[in-house]
Design a protein around this nucleic acid. Structure first.
Lengths: 198, 198
DNA sequence: CCTAGAATTCAACGTATGAGGAAATCTACA
DNA sequence: TGTAGATTTCCTCATACGTTGAATTCTAGG
């Protein structure tokens, strides 16, 4: 019984702040905004709840600090969009499905879940998507209707995340990645390169 | 001060049960599952919280009892799918956007919001979508890959709801219905009638 | 008219939450 | 070495929640 928690700073360099952020990231992703509690995050980080508040101020600020895309849009999107325009839809689809089949799924699901449950979280997500994702696509596309194209692409991705990983509607949830890529690539291709009206 | 609430049954025929269901519908739609409280529903229905429990048993049962699509899939979907196959994408898009521009928006947003926030709600929604929507489309389509087609259509619709009405990402949220219809009709057309791979 | 049961309220319980203040222990720099 | 500031805990407050049990008033059927 030497592990009784005692007040006061612990010996050594503190990595606690990061531990809290990590735990918060996992929990927001898994549980959404409402069901994630400061106390739960503190428990997972093996820390007193007051410390979470001490570092991040409030639950909302914690969320805002922890919301992140599992990739850097500024790096990834230009790479996807440059190159042969005839293949851009497939490249895009492959990337999206790839993220959802990897460690990135958690973060994506978390974003969507949180955006759906808490107004403040929705605003954080809107800001994130608008500035970093849509903005980047618009720059690369350059056309007049690029913002609409970009947001329709975003809607498609969000729909996938919801249907496949949040609601888990069958058979979509059980569809093989390659089949999925085949099925959605043309949509991205059209949204990114072909005329929108007609 | 004659309106003090007194215990005991009120005179006349009781419509309270419906009032509670209505209030619950509105609140689940507006707030999602977690942020909707039995107490809040009771307040809106001008009723004691215990009465909500008396009628519906628990919050989860209340939700399950109140979840509904703002249209009857068994009536609407066959109508949309029969007729000229060359136009089915546009008919579908027009219908979906129409629902989202009308009173049906509330219910759709509620379904999506709730599905994102509560596991039990997600299951209710999955059940609803699988059996009543996807099932109907599959019957009308008849092909082998109809289930996948139907769930991709569902994903597209959910993505629209999320992006346009829950997160409200611009410019999608501000796009005119007609422009939107033009933009998404080809996606539905392809998902419903054209080859999925290739 | 009587009574079984439905509708309705009140009060309460146990639990959880986000947050603040005060105290304790440590690090880091002068 | 001393001390300002950072890190950490404990205790507490005010709220809110879902749910239960008992009491009260009404309706409906015999």
């Amino acid at each position: 019984m030497t592990d009784a928690a005692r007040p006061g700073r612990r010996p050594g360099t503190s990595t606690t702040r990061d531990a809290i952020a990590d735990a918060a990231g996992r929990q927001f992703a898994e549980l959404g905004y409402d069901r994630t509690t400061i106390r739960g995050v503190a428990r997972e980080a093996a820390v007193d709840p007051a410390l979470v508040v001490h570092f991040f101020g409030s639950k909302q600020q914690l969320f805002a600090h922890v919301v992140e895309l599992p990739f850097d849009p500024a790096v990834v999107l230009p790479q996807l969009l440059e190159g042969d325009r005839a293949d851009v839809g497939r490249r895009f689809a492959t990337f999206v499905v790839g993220v959802l089949e990897s460690d990135g799924r958690e973060a994506m699901v978390g974003l969507v879940r949180a955006a759906a449950s808490e107004p403040a979280a929705a605003e954080a997500v809107r800001e994130l998507v608008t500035r970093r994702v849509i903005g980047t696509i618009v720059t690369a596309l350059g056309s007049d209707d690029a913002p609409l194209r970009a947001s329709l692409v975003g809607a498609q991705v969000v729909g996938l995340v919801m249907a496949r990983h949040v609601v888990a509607v069958e058979p979509l949830a059980a569809t093989a990645p390659d089949t999925l890529i085949d099925a959605i690539a043309p949509t991205f291709q059209r949204l990114l390169t072909e005329p929108l009206t007609g």
